[in-house]
Design a protein around this nucleic acid. Sequence first.
DNA 1: TGTTAATAGTTAATATATTAACTAAAGTGA
DNA 2: TCACTTTAGTTAATATATTAACTATTAACA
Lengths: 154, 154
Amino acid sequence: MQEFSRSLPMMLYRTLDAVMPRFRQIFSEFGLTEQQWRVLRVLWQHEQIAFRELADLTLISPPSLVGVVDRLTRSGLADRRRSDTDRRHVFVHATGKGAALESQVRPRVDKAYAELRGSVDTKTWNALIAGLEQISSIDEEAEEKTASRQVINE
Amino acid sequence: MQEFSRSLPMMLYRTLDAVMPRFRQIFSEFGLTEQQWRVLRVLWQHEQIAFRELADLTLISPPSLVGVVDRLTRSGLADRRRSDTDRRHVFVHATGKGAALESQVRPRVDKAYAELRGSVDTKTWNALIAGLEQISSIDEEAEEKTASRQVINE
DNA sequence: TGTTAATAGTTAATATATTAACTAAAGTGA
DNA sequence: TCACTTTAGTTAATATATTAACTATTAACA
């Protein structure tokens, strides 16, 4: 069983299981889910962003992102805007309330992240990130059409 | 944004997104989901296994595992057995049909895994696995009560 | 031994993930 | 300009994930 237990996918899931609870704990204190946090995290750095680009940056598939944005909208933290030049496009942006959350949540999350980072020696950490980088880009050729998708900005 | 995009959690998710599709493709050819595969993968090596241990080995939480085992049961691939000594315990085991799947699916999955493994140099791969191992065991102290949970075998 | 605390699995409620199908809006070329 | 193809976002159907109850059984102990 050792073999299966130590396979790359299982190690990745195990690592996420070990790392994420501390962050989710913080998110929940602000009534946010992990995905909602990811969306806000991106919105805080873009006046507005194309729906598809938001999906790419948050690693949330479009079908899932629809619901996440819906719930953020209901909570009054984000909103949608239809593009005027191409009505197929949708832009998402944080509301004042959503933007205001940044100063509350980010310090907590950044601190937790720093603690996590500090619990591992730099050499191991860098090797880990480099390895993840390399494997996640293996299929980059196949993904290139996605990457080359036009970036909308109006 | 680079910082967020390259954070450990995002790198872990990105890597899973890059690695899992090839396996899910195979699973789907046999009408299996990723979680169902994980359960079968464990059942193939245990005549029967305690529900909780199955949850630990597959990294599927008990509430989720209930549904996975339900569906495997409906498909005729697995089944439940109540413990006679302690009727709170449940054992899960693969049916003949479920066991027969191993010779069909595993070769395909093992081959795909070997290809994945072969696409990265050994040094990088080992460093990656070691890093994941280290980080996933950071909270091992807190998890120890879980690890020490009694292993049932009747 | 009756009562209370602890366990194992399950159910509930809500949010996501994944794949396929659909709708509206552009883009294309005859 | 009309039929055909693409594209962007959304909906649908089904399977999971996550946290908080709940139920059936045991274990503990006065």
